[in-house]
Write a protein that binds this DNA or RNA. Sequence first.
RNA 1: UCCUCGGUAGCUCAGCCGGUUAGAGCAUUUGACUGUUAAUCAAAGGGUCGUUGGUUCGAGUCCAACCCGGGGAGCCA
Length: 499
Amino acid sequence: MNTNIIDLPKHEGSTVTLQGWVYNIRESKGIKFLVLRDGSEFCQVVVSQQDVDEESWNIAEQLTQESSVKVTGKVVPNHRDRFPFEIQVQTLEVYQIVKDYPITHKEHGVDFLMNLRHLWLRTPRQWAIMRVRNRIIFAIHQFFQEQGFVQMDAPIFTGNACEGTSTLFETDYYGVPAYLSQSGQLYGEAMAMAMGKIYTFGPTFRAEKSQTRRHLSEFWMIEPEMAFYDLEMNMDLIESMLKYITQAVLKDCQTELKLLNRDTTKLQKLVEQPFIRMTYEEAVKLLKSDKSQELLQKDLDNAKTTTEALLQEQKTLQQEHGGAKKGRKAEIDRRMQEIHTQLKDLEESIRNIPQWMKSAKEFELGNDFGGSDETVITRHFEVPIMVHRYPHQVKAFYMKRDPKDSRWAMGVDVLAPEGYGEIVGGGERETDEQVLIQKIHEHNLPMSAFEWYLDLRRFGSVPHSGFGLGLERLVAYIAGLHHVRETIPFARHYNRLTP
RNA sequence: UCCUCGGUAGCUCAGCCGGUUAGAGCAUUUGACUGUUAAUCAAAGGGUCGUUGGUUCGAGUCCAACCCGGGGAGCCA
């Protein structure tokens, strides 16, 4: 009977057929240990010369990495492996024998792997990431649907360059310029006035020439918009959503998180402890505080001490290497490689931290936070921080002013811990037509493009709020990844359009 | 656009103050091994040192320009 690897526990002791690809081969005389992957999981498949017919053994002798096969055999427990069952093969058929598969089981550089992204997706690490991404997407739908939200989609082609054209991708739309959407939020507001509570789920595009671990040119955003929600209700919703999603991943993706070496105690804290909420003014105070400097200084000292220790170890290993036996030599080489990458990271930190300290100390009230400032603020806590009431100058035209203090806009940014930065941005929207008109003028935006939007304030204007969640940044945070480009099947960023 | 680090075998990297024939591991090929876990062991093949120009008796190594990539800044409703 045909089955998938993930279902093997249900078939212990019986004979099943699997179809998949050979991920790895280890062999000894008369016996071969294949690691088979079929998309659902990875498991060991044992081909023993004395247990299979000659035809099958011949095939087994020719198998290479990523060759596609069909195996039939008995399901038996395998306690030495991550996956607790293996197949004792009876017959083996082949779809294709592969020659010269380019990705080996050794470390590779990012650029090399990104050029082979269509194949890179087959490795266990990428498999785990994509499954976490999938679970997050599903959890988002579950959360909103359970709360009575309606999913509605905003258009991707837009005519109005509402944020200035510099970060927009321009296309030719039947002879007139059209831009790829940077945000569906204005449309979200219109839809919320029709349906009460809605969320959009779609791709957004930003033409920023940013080459950082947090940026993509094409990424997926979830943008809920709710009629009759104020800023506080908005923040409550954001917090419960993030807790819901994280809980779902913790419950259903233990295998994946383990494969990714994610420290789940940190995610557990996110689920169990209340988020920190502070105003922009308080966040600035914290940023400029002596404690921020102390924390950074400590990080810097740690980086330096670790560097020293690693250099020392490197020296010792180098001396040992000459006289070492072959096996030990390989071990040393591996460790040297590890040390090498760690040293590079540390070197980076040692260069960056002093700049962060300077930037934090010299920060001026009224400015927007830079990437490093966000990291410094989050460095103080282990749970996400919701920073609200920003200077209205740095926020978008549709953001409502704080009725108690007109310096502030009723916006909120959620900063993830561990340096992952802003994962959610949102706020309460301006409801007054006249204020909006004035704001549109101040931002030098073309009034004609916003006539339809102003209608929302002319016909039944109500308090409302919403936010935008960057899917890839959330995946990076939950999965504990270094770079957002690994969180999406085919990343699009500066200098990257293929594959 | 600016700052910074890098480009050496298919891949990841080493190569010191410029000096003989440019090295290692993995991958590939061949052989050994009947329970392997990045399996191990033995051997072989594999190079226009990013490009162009310069300095020098001599350049992977020094200098200049350019190309490509990583990280950071700016930018990121």
